[in-house]
Design a protein around this nucleic acid. Structure first.
Length: 733
DNA sequence: ATGGGTCCT
DNA sequence: AGGACCC
């Protein structure tokens, strides 16, 4: 049978968790608590839009996809707009709301990878969650800093969950306090280099770091003392609010009568196990106690690239083909920049279903012929028709056109991405952007693929080891920064950089003039081809010899092929040009306020400060004070907005005027038979099937109701194996 | 809901 | 191929 991987006794200690002594006993075993940081960018899409166009900063802003506002800035929130509100309602509540379309994710994706990259420059253990969240396992960083920190002069930065920062014994929580300092430094870097505000949570697991990061909302950070774990878990509105317990599991729990986190904690394990299986039963029960041993799994390049569009109706093959072609051209362009070879193509669609039965997507996939894949990556334009033709075959496998059809969504996806030549297979090709340069033949790269861990099978432990280790080696002090000249470098080839990235906050305090490490290759920056565009004359940096991030062993690094070195260096880099004018005085006022909040106040015992003193300024200061200068390069070509369907309004249409009145035995009482009878026959059939299927709609709390057609509950789980990042270029030793 | 992503079964 | 989870 399967024993739990790596969890050791974690599953068994749930019962003592509430017991204060449990922590101590756990540490006795040699394993110390981790220090996990969770970063969550504030109203992410809206922030990116405000960077692209700073004029929006002073206005209530909503980002629209189709007919909904997917997110909005804090100004809009004050005026009653919320996330995922319909456009109509948002405009009713806030007529002045400024809307920008956000269906094209290009800019959000790119900025998102910059964020991950910046965090990775401090510490390789960074895991992405969506576009706007990142986990960092800062355990080693903390441990190293602890060595040369005078513990008696430590203090927390930011909030401490349900505690007065001044009343907390910092010595007792020195590692957590250091975590809060590191989190503050990273947030400051996100601000000074990328212009983004964020929240952070500091705790000893991903679960708790994530939960606590949201407790003070815009632009603040919060640490969680271990003794507050139970209180935080208990404050959640229900099991579904626990990350890792989603809608489905929540519904099943309800059916079992488990309505609260507390109820989940004390539910008999065997009952949970009979519904979910033992492994996931334990897992979710542990989550309810705040126990989450899942590791921070380093981000690598994405496993798949997809592009999709939803619409009210597509019902002819020609329309399908048109849409598929549109999606595929965009996707191909992205794939080309990525540089890996897509080996499989998947087409998925959603059919119009009567009562929008939650997500029923169907898909078919098939291999992509090598010659086609190669054309994709090479940018050969006739790859598109080839892909379209493959996709249409998949379509015909899904849909019998003879019957007529009604689609509501189409998605195309490249998966099974094969690293070609090793270079460009890294997260960095995402960020630092490699020029198209189709040139190289595919055979050139195998020297390095083989280069990863000579000794290692177990990719998982391998990664862990590599990541966790290394830096004790040399370097005692990282984090000189907090100030280097800000702004991110305009990546090579502006032709694909969408963001108007000149808009950066002024650097705060300039003691460290240069980054701790710099790329060797500013020259290659320079040489990016870039025919018509020279607006980027300002890469004014005096760079010196290369210097490596802490986790990189210089010897290993030196042994790598040069082009790999170059890529790595490029990926470590984040420097750039400083925006010249700081516009108004406000800019710097605001900026120094931010600086102040990051300051560690060593001797502030005199408890007069409000507890969140050092951090906290509300979004007001952000909202009103940030205008940085920006020229907002409205980069049209990258944001293919205009191309997508224009009509977005009115998804709902009246069900028609009732006339007939056939009553059907299977129609639920809350459905008007007249309306029902007016529906198209296929829709009627579908509804009936649906109703029939979900018959057991009773409140019976017992485990008897479910007739589940599907198999046993699958389970979410910790992130799996990946080991797919730059780390693989370095051996553990 | 949108337009993405992840991993597991 | 689909299902769960995440944003």
């Amino acid at each position: 049978m399967d024993t739990d991987e790596e969890g050791e006794d974690d599953c068994d200690i749930s019962a003592d968790l509430l017991d204060a002594s449990a922590c101590a006993s756990r540490r006795a075993g040699g394993a110390r608590d981790r220090v996990i940081l969770h970063f969550d960018l504030d109203c992410y899409y809206a922030q990116v839009e405000m960077i692209r166009n700073p004029a929006l900063r002073t206005k209530p802003l909503g980002v629209q996809q189709k007919y909904i506002i997917v997110t909005c800035n804090y100004l809009a929130r004050e005026l009653g707009v919320t996330k995922l509100m319909s456009l109509k309602e948002a405009l009713e509540r806030c007529p002045q709301l400024v809307i920008v379309k956000g269906e094209d994710l290009t800019c959000y994706r790119e900025m998102s990878y910059r964020v991950t990259e910046l965090l990775m420059s401090y510490c390789p253990l960074v895991e992405r969650l969506g576009f706007d969240e990142n986990f960092v396992d800062a355990t080693e960083l903390v441990e190293n800093r602890l060595k040369d920190t005078d513990i008696s002069s430590l203090s927390f930065v930011g909030h401490i969950y349900k505690h007065d920062a001044l009343a907390v014994d910092v010595q007792e929580h020195a590692r957590l306090a250091l975590g809060s300092i590191i989190a503050a430094e990273m947030r400051e870097a996100l601000w000074s280099r990328l212009g983004l505000t964020s929240c952070a949570g500091i705790a000893s697991s991903k679960l708790m770091a994530k939960l606590v990061s949201g407790t003070f909302k815009p632009n603040q950070q919060t640490a969680l003392l271990p003794q507050s774990t139970a209180e935080l878990m208990g404050s959640l509105a229900g099991p579904c609010k626990v990350p890792g317990i989603g809608y489905r599991t929540g519904e099943k729990l309800k059916a079992l009568g488990v309505l609260s986190v507390r109820a989940l904690q004390v539910a008999p394990l065997f009952e949970l196990a009979s519904e979910f299986g033992e492994a996931t039963a334990k897992r979710i029960q542990n989550l309810a106690y705040g126990i989450d041993p899942s590791p921070v799994t380093p981000a690598g390049p994405p496993q798949s690239l997809s592009d999709e569009d939803s619409f009210r109706k597509i019902s002819t093959v020609m329309e399908v083909e048109g849409k598929v072609r549109e999606l595929l051209s965009c996707l191909m362009e992205r794939m080309r920049k990525d540089g890996r070879l897509p080996q499989t193509l998947r087409l998925t669609l959603r059919r119009s279903t009567a009562l929008n039965r939650w997500f029923c997507r169907e898909s078919r996939q098939c291999p992509i012929p090598h010659h086609t894949a190669h054309r994709v990556v090479t940018g050969c334009s006739d790859a598109v028709p080839q892909l379209v033709s493959i996709a249409m075959k998949l379509f015909h496998r899904l849909v019998d056109v003879g019957e007529g059809f009604h689609l509501t969504l189409l998605n195309v996806c490249f998966t099974n991405l094969q690293a070609k030549g090793s270079d460009r297979n890294s997260i960095s090709s995402y960020l630092t952007h490699t020029p198209p340069t189709a040139a190289h033949t595919s055979t050139q790269g195998q020297d390095m693929v083989g280069g990863l861990s000579p000794n290692g099978p177990s990719s998982r432990t391998q990664t862990r080891t590599v990541a966790g280790v290394k830096d004790t080696h040399k370097r005692k002090e990282l984090f000189p920064h907090t100030a280097l000249s800000s702004s991110f470098s305009s990546p090579p080839s502006s032709s694909s950089e969408p963001l108007g990235q000149k808009s950066l906050p002024q650097a705060v305090q300039a003691h460290t003039p240069v980054p701790p490490w710099r790329p060797i290759l500013e020259h290659s920056d320079e040489k990016r081809v870039d025919p018509g565009d020279s607006r980027r004359a300002s890469v004014l940096e005096e760079r010196k010899g290369p210097d490596l991030p802490p986790h990189v062993d210089p010897d290993v690094f030196g042994a790598l092929p040069e082009h790999i070195q170059m890529e790595l260096l490029a990926s470590f880099q984040t420097g750039g040009s400083v925006p010249e004018d700081s516009t108004e005085a406000q800019g710097s006022a605001h900026t120094s306020r931010f600086a102040e909040q990051l300051t560690v106040h060593p001797n502030r015992e005199g408890g007069s400060r409000h507890r969140e003193s050092s951090v906290s300024h509300s979004n007001h200061s952000m909202a009103h004070n940030d205008d940085f200068s920006t020229e907002h390069a409205q980069n049209e070509e990258l944001c293919r907005e205009g191309q997508r369907s224009e009509e977005r309004h009115a998804m709902e249409d009246a069900a028609g005027v009732p006339v007939a009145q056939t009553s059907h035995p299977d129609i639920p009482p809350n459905v008007d038979p007249c309306v029902f009878s007016q529906l198209p026959p296929d829709m009627q059939a579908e509804l009936l099937a649906d109703w029939k299927q979900r018959r057991p709609t009773l409140k019976v709390p017992s485990k008897l109701a479910t007739k589940h057609s599907a198999a046993r509950a699958g389970k979410p789980a910790a992130k799996g194996s990946q080991s797919n990042s730059l780390l693989k270029y370095f051996k553990p030793s």
